[in-house]
Simulated assay, not measured.
Amino acid sequence: MVRKEARCATGEEHVTAERRRGRGAVSNATGRFEPERREAVDDGWDCLDDLPPFKTEVREERVKTIIARNSSPDIGFDRSINPYRGCEHGCIYCYARPSHAYWGWSAGLDFETKLVAKVNAAEALEAELARSGYEPATIMIGANTDAYQPVERERKITRAVLEVLERTSHPVALVTKSALILRDIDILARMAERELVRVAVSVTTLDHRLARRMEPRASTPLRRIEAIRKLAAASIPVSVMAAPLIPALTDNELESILKAAAEAGASDAGYVLLRLPLEVSPLFQEWLRTEFPHRADRVMSLVRQTREGKDYVSRFGERHCGSGHYAEQIAARFRIALRRLNLGKRDLSLRRDLFRRPGAQLSLF
C-alpha cells in the first residue's frame, strides 16, 4: 500500500543535500516488511529548509546471546560477533543494509543514523563461552557491521568483548575500515604472541575524495594504511581486504591498494566484488547517479556482466567474486599481484588449544 503525503507533513522521506550532509545514502525508503510505503508529494509549500539534518541515534539493547552462527561454505568462520546494529560509517555499498528492515527501519539513512548498541555483549559472551558443550573456534568480529564505528569510542563494547576473549585465550579475527582499532593494540599484541588473533583492514580506494563520498564516516584511506603499518609493527598478523571492488569506479586500484598494504606490512590479502543484494541495489544506483551520473550506466553494465545479467547473484562461492570474463580478469590480476608482492605466504591459522572456559577452575573443588 502506498500512502502519499504532503511534503511538509512528515520528514523521513524528504532528503535534501543539506539534510544528508556527511551521510552515504541519498534516500530513506520505507523498509520492505512494512505494510505501508510512504511517498512524498509536493503540496506547494516550500518548507524543506525547516527540516533538521539526520542525526545519529543510539538505542541500547541487552541481548541473551551474542555469538551468531552460520553454515556458509564460502567463508572461513562459522561464528561471529557484531556489537552494533547499523553502522555510522555510511558505506553506500554495505551488504548489511537490508538487515535493518527486520527492525522496521530503512536500509537507507536509517541504517546510518539509527544504531543499536548491545551493551551487555561482553557478559553475554562470557556466559556462552562458559557453557559445558562449547567448543572454541575463531570468532569473527565485524562481519556484518563495523565493530570500530565512531560510537565505539564512547561505548567501548568491542574492547570489552576482546577483554573476555583474551582472558579465556579464545581465537578471534577482526575486520574493520577504522583506525580506531589501534586503540586496542595492547590487547591484540598480547593475543598475537599466543597466535590467537588476526586482523583484516578493508581498503576500498586510495582516493580520499572518493572515499569521503562513498564511505563518509569511515577512516580515510591513508589512516587505514597507517593502521596496517602499526598493527604489523606490533607483530599482529594483518591482511588487507580490497573490498568491494566496484567495476569502472575502484577496480583499477586493485594493484595499488595491495602494493600500499604490502609496503605497510600486510602479510595477506583478499578482495570482494561489489555485492548488491535486496535494497542495496537501488540505494547504490541512486547514489551512483547522484555522484557519478556520467559513469553510472557503465558501472552497472559491468556489474551485471559479473552477475549473469542481474544486479546480484547470491550463490555460495560466486557471491563474493562474481562470474564471467570481467570477473575472471579481476581474479587473474589479483593472483598476479599476490605473487609479485609476496602476499598470502603466511600461515594465519589460530590456536584453539589454549582456550580456558570461564569458571572452569571451580570444577577443582
Rank of each mutant, 00 (worst) to 15 (best):
D42K: 01
D42T: 01
G44V: 01
D46Q: 11
C47M: 03
L48M: 08
D50H: 14
L51P: 01
F54E: 05
F54Q: 07
I66R: 00
I67D: 01
A68P: 00
A68Q: 05
R69Q: 06
R69W: 06
R69T: 06
N70W: 04
D74H: 14
R79D: 04
R79S: 03
I81P: 02
I81W: 05
I81Y: 02
N82G: 03
P83H: 07
Y84F: 10
E88T: 00
H89L: 07
G90F: 12
C91A: 06
I92W: 05
I92K: 03
Y95L: 05
A96V: 04
R97W: 15
P98S: 10
H100D: 14
H100L: 15
A101T: 08
A101W: 14
G104D: 04
G104H: 05
W105L: 15
S106N: 02
L109T: 04
L109W: 05
F111A: 12
L115R: 07
K118A: 00
A121D: 00
A121W: 04
A122S: 01
A122M: 01
A127F: 01
A127S: 04
R131V: 01
S132G: 13
S132D: 09
S132W: 10
Y134W: 08
P136H: 10
A137I: 03
I139W: 10
I139M: 04
I141R: 01
G142K: 03
A143N: 08
N144I: 15
T145L: 11
T145M: 09
A147N: 05
A147D: 05
Y148D: 07
P150L: 09
V151I: 15
V151F: 15
R155H: 13
K156N: 15
R159I: 14
R159V: 09
L165D: 04
L165V: 07
L165Q: 08
E166K: 12
T168C: 15
H170T: 02
H170A: 07
L174S: 01
T176L: 08
T176W: 11
K177Y: 12
S178F: 05
I181H: 09
